[in-house]
Design a protein around this nucleic acid. Structure first.
Length: 480
RNA sequence: GCUCCCUUCGUCUAGUGGUCCAGGACGCUGCCCUCUCAAGGCGGUAACACGGGUUCGAACCCCGUAGGGAGCGCCA
């Protein structure tokens, strides 16, 4: 008996959040952060997280976009416990609710023409008042057989008040609202109705969404009340702006989550970056997923919008690349090598390459670029590097080191380091005078990992061949 | 235009009346380390939007102003 009661109580208390994107584009960073916060809230409280696709706009919704959103969620690891649900599958239910409201006199038919509505709006704007429907069709007997929309009869007076988890107490006057359309002429339901019905049906306890929806909240609350449903708790998250403070758009560079994936950003880096946008926990910057779940509290979310800063994202990305296990980095790096036409199986162990490059790249794309020479001869020397280091004075050190390396049968980093040291000493040169020309010779570039690791991974045969290429380059220069 | 909201270094933020001539992080920058590039270590640069109050005392409370944002669809 007691256990039974407890169980019932627990059920009601189970927290459920949702992410409800409309599939009209890719998953962008703003949506991803909204999803992250919703997900964190559910995870932190042992609740459920549901994914609902709001595809009632048949004109703009696409299959491609649905897949892009699903792909983005998966990549970020924001796994959902229920769904994906599709609103287009719930039309019968929405109609049932709309008919119920109609029957109860809480909604009515309206046959105002678009022309009348447009004229009304224009008139109101001209008179400097907020444009809203004037209730022209309220109480009019309009036949279901003639073309019409259905409007929700919004309470004409009073105030809608709710306690937002991030905004605090929010109040709207019903006078500011109007009788919104809940069913279009073509019979399809509209957003404010479908959201309310689904949230109630799915048992969503906490509606966490972007604050561009805050103005919809009082309308939704009024519909919920008309339906006699419990209200969820609301949390309206601030927007993410571009680095110039304006609304995030394509001209700010990448906004799609998968674009970051393509650029070689690690999901944990993006997540860490996103969680710190509008939220903080003292001075802490680095958060593992588990720490986020443990420490995240929606009450610590800021009210003000924040600007997206790619530099900081890249810093975090480098941090995670550096900290991660070389074999995972190698695994993630492999496709990027493939994009450059390189099959990692044809050269040194990619795990070893990842290990030596880990702290030298901000993205996996960059790491692939600076690692290409381990797998294939460079097409040309980096111009500045060659100009500076492959000069006639470098000839003797290169010849000497070539000789020393040729004689080496233990091609280990230790012996390679020793060989370079020995040559430098024998010529009475600083190590850099030998190592740097050698570096440019074997890699074609000015910067690589330590010379010992570099030579080791490039291998004896390629090293000797490339030293000859460098010597030929120097000689060609001398001819000029 | 109307309604609502927001405002600490360039950026992300800490800060909830005295411990703040404002702390951390990214960026930029100086030095150290060093075979290059990174990474790392130690420094530096830089902010309470403005104007009035309230108070012994204000980044923190109140009021204006300015700037920014969101919404005002048979889009979501």
């Amino acid at each position: 008996m007691k256990a039974e009661a407890l169980k019932g109580n627990d059920y009601r208390m189970t927290i459920k959040t949702r992410f409800a994107p409309s599939p009209t584009g890719y998953l962008h960073v703003g949506g991803a952060r909204t999803a992250l916060f919703s997900w964190l809230y559910a995870r932190k409280h042992g609740g459920k997280f549901v994914l609902r696709i709001e595809d009632t706009d048949l004109e703009r919704s696409t299959e491609e976009s649905i897949n892009a959103i699903l792909e983005g969620m998966t990549w970020l690891g924001l796994e959902y416990d229920e769904g994906p649900f599709y609103q287009t599958h719930h039309f019968d239910r929405y109609n049932e609710i709309i008919d119920q409201l109609l029957g109860e006199g809480k909604a009515y038919r309206c046959n105002c023409s678009r022309e009348r509505l447009d004229a009304l709006r224009e008139e109101q704007m001209k008179n400097k008042v907020k444009p809203r429907y004037d209730g022209h069709c309220r109480g009019k007997a309009i036949s279901p057989d003639e073309p019409h929309v259905i409007r929700f009869l919004n309470p004409p007076t009073g105030t809608v008040v709710f306690d937002d988890m991030v905004r605090g107490n929010v109040a709207f006057n019903n006078e500011e609202l109007d009788d919104l359309i809940i069913r279009r002429t073509d019979g399809s339901p509209t957003y404010n109705l479908t959201v309310v019905v689904d949230d109630a049906d799915m048992g969503i306890t906490h509606v966490i969404r972007g604050d561009d929806h805050i103005n919809n909240t009082p309308r939704q609350i009024n519909i919920l009340r008309a339906l006699g449903k419990d209200l969820p708790v609301y949390a309206h998250l601030p927007m993410i702006l571009g680095d110039d403070g304006s609304r995030l758009s394509k001209r700010h560079g990448a906004v799609s989550v998968m674009e970051y994936h393509n650029q070689g950003v690690l999901p944990e880096a993006l997540l860490n970056y996103l969680v710190r946008l509008g939220w903080s926990h003292g001075d802490q910057e680095i958060f593992s997923i588990d720490e986020m779940i443990e420490l995240f509290d929606i009450k610590d979310v800021n009210k003000a919008a924040s600007s997206f800063n790619t530099e900081k994202l890249l810093w975090l990305n480098q941090h995670y690349i550096k900290e991660d296990k070389p074999d995972r980095i190698a695994h993630l790096l492999s496709p990027h090598m493939g994009n450059r036409g390189i099959d990692p199986a044809t050269g040194p162990d990619l795990v070893e390459v990842a290990r030596v490059q880990q702290e030298r790249a901000k993205t996996l794309v960059e790491m692939a670029e600076i690692s290409e020479f381990f797998y294939k001869d460079y097409d040309a020397f980096d111009e500045n590097a060659a100009k500076k280091n492959l000069r006639p004075v470098a000839k003797e050190p290169l010849l000497k080191i070539k000789e020393a390396l040729q004689a080496l049968d233990d091609w280990s980093p230790e012996r390679l380091k020793q060989a370079v040291d020995d040559v430098a000493e024998s010529l009475d040169l600083k190590m850099g005078k030998v190592a740097q020309p050698l570096r440019v010779a074997v890699s074609g570039r000015a910067a690589t990992p330590g010379i010992d690791e570099t030579l080791f991974l490039v291998g004896k045969e390629a090293t000797l061949r490339r030293i000859d290429m460098a010597l030929a380059y120097i000689e060609a220069r001398e001819q000029q």
